[in-house]
Nucleic acid binder design. Structure first.
Lengths: 185, 185
DNA sequence: GTCTATATTATGATAGAC
DNA sequence: GTCTATCATAATATAGAC
């Protein structure tokens, strides 16, 4: 838990990386081992199976999400603005691991599917006190999903969000989300 | 083109169905042939390769999208409302084929990736005359992506949109989308 | 048009040396 | 902890009978 072996992290990085750049299907044991610069045997010492690799990636995601949620509720611009903005931060560690787990989920991995549904529940419950209506909260989550989805879908080409600040203003205004007025609904 | 052989369509249906119910990874030639009730050889008479299957599914999608766009711009509730609403129509033919192609795309199929990006461009260009600002248009597309994404992600469990009409009202109001005021932006 | 083999390669996983 | 075989299975695709 505290300071895992270097090679193990390297393999996990490689797993994530191959999923992101070439798709889940390319992320075979062979390919991941090669990317990490270890032999297949070496990989299998740290992760005894494909499922073990997935579990480790999910753990990494949940760890990073917990940190992100903490920062989000403390953001001076308000949690909703922070949430929308970080949804679009392509390429940071959190976004990468969520996209990777999302790919595993949409490929039929039950563990990853459950992890993504839990993630959405965490987002919902964390933002709930800051959005006055349930519909508004759903709109916010859907926009975030949409942003994420556009990152996740294309391998290579990603449509840009032209004016993120204007989008945030539109969403927060439409939903009545402001700093911390506790919800009525 | 006009009235393709029955077995061919049956195989294509099976391909789509397996992708949707068990994930892209499960949609092997063997599995698809079995689902369609033909032998592997029979399948390969109609579709000489895996890529040929994908191409045929993409064609089907593009055909259905063209029909849908036509209906959308003629919808009495306005194209934007029609667009958001049909995004959530889980299980109809259009939604099924888009989800299936989306799964192929997120698995690294270059053809499907391109097809999905084209699809988004078609949506963008078709809705553009009905939304006064580009940011508003992006919000609408993101919400639709979010709805679609939630359909696509989970194999089995899908979070429900609690109040679709309220969501549509919120989105159309926020974006200034109404019947046909041509865009200024 | 549809079938039954079968070839070829790739995949996840094991065994055991170093 | 990391490596080199090696195995069993499953994948795409081919060949050729019916």
């Amino acid at each position: 838990m505290s300071r895992p072996p270097l090679a193990r992290e390297k393999v996990l990085d490689a797993f994530e990386d191959v999923i992101l750049t070439e798709g889940e299907r390319a992320a075979t044991m062979d390919r991941v081992a090669a990317q990490a610069g270890v032999s297949k045997g070496g990989l299998l010492y740290h992760f005894a199976s494909k499922v073990a690799l997935e579990e480790a990636l999910i753990e990494r995601m949940e760890r990073l999400v917990a940190v992100d949620m903490k920062e989000m509720v403390e953001d001076p611009a308000g949690p909703v603005a922070a949430f929308i903005r970080t949804s679009a931060q392509t390429g940071d560690e959190l976004d990468r691991v969520i996209t990777a787990v999302g790919r595993l989920a949409s490929n039929g991995s039950p563990l990853s599917g459950e992890a993504i549904r839990n993630l959405r529940a965490v987002w919902h419950d964390t933002l709930q006190p800051f959005v006055p209506t349930e519909v508004g909260l759903q709109l916010i989550l859907l926009v975030s999903d949409g942003v994420y989805f556009n990152n996740a879908l294309a391998i290579g080409a990603v449509p840009e969000i032209a004016d993120m600040e204007a989008l945030i203003t539109m969403v927060t205004t439409a939903t009545g989300a402001e700093l911390p007025p506790p919800r009525i609904d």
